[in-house]
Design a protein around this nucleic acid. Structure first.
Lengths: 349, 349
DNA sequence: CGACGATCGGGGAGCGCTCTCAACGGCGGG
DNA sequence: CCCGCCGTTGAGAGCGCTCCCCGATCGTCG
């Protein structure tokens, strides 16, 4: 119900008065109670209880310059974010970690370029202690708009100058791709195709590189560009079958793409895995297990990646906060993390 | 990169000094510039620009008691939230609407009962101007923990005393279900089964009621309980087929459930729609269109529901703010909205 | 038993902003 | 030509909290 609370919330002053102590003492108790003797602590606690006191975060932030909030920026245009459980899982990992550290999650969704300025302004406004940024595209202007806010990226950012020491969490896309393709080779497949992801993202590029690492002189006709969506997977699969009717395996850049490819293979009456073996990437559970046939895929622990990002950010926050690091300094900054992947064998390959 | 900004951000004071005006005038310009003459407005604007001034939200909130932030509470235990694009779509609608009103979205995910207290505390803490609460279960203690925060619910809350005047946005679950079942009847089907959703949610109950409205004396054996997931759909479908091998139609509580049912029907070699017609609910696009056969379903505009929730909340905020409504009062509060549904005919029925 | 040191509690400043209120200046009407 | 009113600007008082600093207080050792 829409209502406005009129009765003013109790202030620390009120708590102090009720407990018969000074505001400072009440504050100490509320913030942990160090350096206050037991009987007083108890009295203050009780006053807090009776009055239903909750600290005013705005007032607190004003002086501490901490907000106990972290922004999660998802810079994915249009609908993709939501067709894909990927973000949802990361979000869940992040949420868990932040909750454990009493931080709030401020979600910043950008729908297009116009939104970037808004996000930049928001972050610059010092509303949050740090930012977790996802799904950057190669030419994304967003990082340039982020100043003075500790940031951890989800996935290796793609800018050219060696990632400028950015902290990121990624999985071993290239290694995972290599493992998948090697598995196909081990199965005796020779005409192995690859459907890429959206090539303006490093994850897609890295998986393609992994594919090429194994298929050193792959027929360029065996590589088709997808975009991480089932529809893109279908389109690319059709293209591939038209160009190379003799292909006997497909490594798809992610499970959604693989699902699209499977559909086209069925439609064209190729048996999987007998005629064409298929491997995906992600191990997105409902998708892979319920695919027909169940999908062999490269698993990455998505939720863990989210959790790790949050942990890295929070740790960095602590570090710099306690050890007066100079502006822009990297001293003590956590390093990026690349998580390993594992091949999960199911029926499709 | 993890860095701490050391250089203090410019204050309004600094802007005022640079523009050669008082802090008050600078504040006026920053907040819209009413009642300030043009030349001064321009000077202040320029000073803001040059200094890269961004208002300190904490200081502002401290005095205005507004936060320009809205909490989105998703009280869904475990993974369901994320397997289901439902929330993602609502979130997107909400995000768009909030962005248009310069409000931020604070996401509160609860993983279990323990989290409820945390959420209640957070909301009571006056960190946000209002809350949007989703996916309540019938016995959820959360509403009881929300005090003094304007709230709009996603889906009709299920408490017994007539929803206590709560504001909610829902779609016409009962009417949509009726339409679906009538369509099946119109197709000449007589042994129509229903797979329910999780019956601790009103949406599931309402759809079941709609089913019963049409199938007044339905054989109880034709109703099986699901939980809105594909796995639940599979389980229920198996049950139904075992109990009533002669059924000729299934109305599933949502598309995910229908997808599970379709899988079982294929496995049992029933043709859809020839032997068994299937209708879902939601019109979750990738699911319905790519189902085999494409799924006839009851469409609800999920993103619009989200947008509407946000709009309702923001409007209520305005209203009460301007027209000193007494505590707990409902005067001028927006009414709940129930959105219509439409039957989308595809191949499955 | 007294004095010194360590520790605890209280007073007060001030974080950056908004908003009220008073002062000021310019204009039109009498 | 003067008065009064309105529109514009500036000064200042807090919003609720943290934290510094100093005085009070306790324990303890000589």
């Amino acid at each position: 119900m829409i209502e406005q609370s009129t009765e003013p919330r109790p202030t620390l002053e009120a708590v102090a008065a009720r407990a018969g102590v000074s505001r400072a003492t009440a504050s100490r108790v509320v913030n942990g109670g160090d350096g206050v003797r037991e009987p007083l602590v108890e009295r203050v606690r009780q006053a807090v209880e009776e009055l239903g006191y909750v600290p005013n975060q705005a007032a607190r932030s004003l002086v501490t310059r901490r907000h106990d909030a972290v922004a999660v920026v998802i810079a994915e245009p249009e609908t993709r974010v939501f067709a894909d459980p990927f973000f949802a899982l990361q979000l869940r990992g992040i949420s868990k970690e932040l909750t454990a550290h009493d931080s709030q999650l401020v979600l910043l969704l950008t729908e297009g370029r116009d939104d970037h300025a808004r996000v930049g302004r928001y972050l610059a406004g010092g509303h949050v202690d740090g930012a977790l940024v996802f799904s950057l595209h190669l030419d994304d202007p967003l990082p340039g708009l982020i100043h003075g806010v500790p940031t951890v990226y989800g996935g290796r950012p793609g800018w050219s100058d060696g990632s400028r020491g950015a902290v990121y969490v990624d999985s071993d896309n290239r290694g995972g791709a290599r493992e998948a393709v090697r598995h196909l080779v081990g199965l005796g497949r020779r005409r192995i195709a690859h459907i890429t992801g959206a090539l303006d993202q490093t994850s897609a590029v890295d998986r393609l590189d992994g594919f090429r690492d194994v298929m050193v002189d792959a027929d360029p006709k065996l590589i088709a560009e997808g975009d991480f969506t089932p529809a893109g997977g279908e389109r690319a699969m059709r293209e591939l079958l038209d160009r190379c009717p003799d292909l006997d395996a497909v490594f798809a850049a992610n499970d959604l793409t693989a699902a699209g490819a499977l559909r086209v293979l069925r439609e064209r009456e190729r048996r999987v895995p007998e005629d064409v073996a298929v491997i995906g990437f992600d191990d997105m559970l409902p998708v892979t297990e319920q695919a027909d046939p169940p999908l062999t895929t490269v698993r990455q622990d998505i939720e863990e990646m989210g959790r790790l990002m949050a942990r890295l950010l929070l740790r960095g926050l602590d570090r710099t906060a306690s050890a007066g690091v100079p502006a822009g300094g990297l001293a003590g900054a956590p390093a990026s993390v690349v998580l390993p992947t594992t091949l999960v064998r199911r029926a499709s390959a």
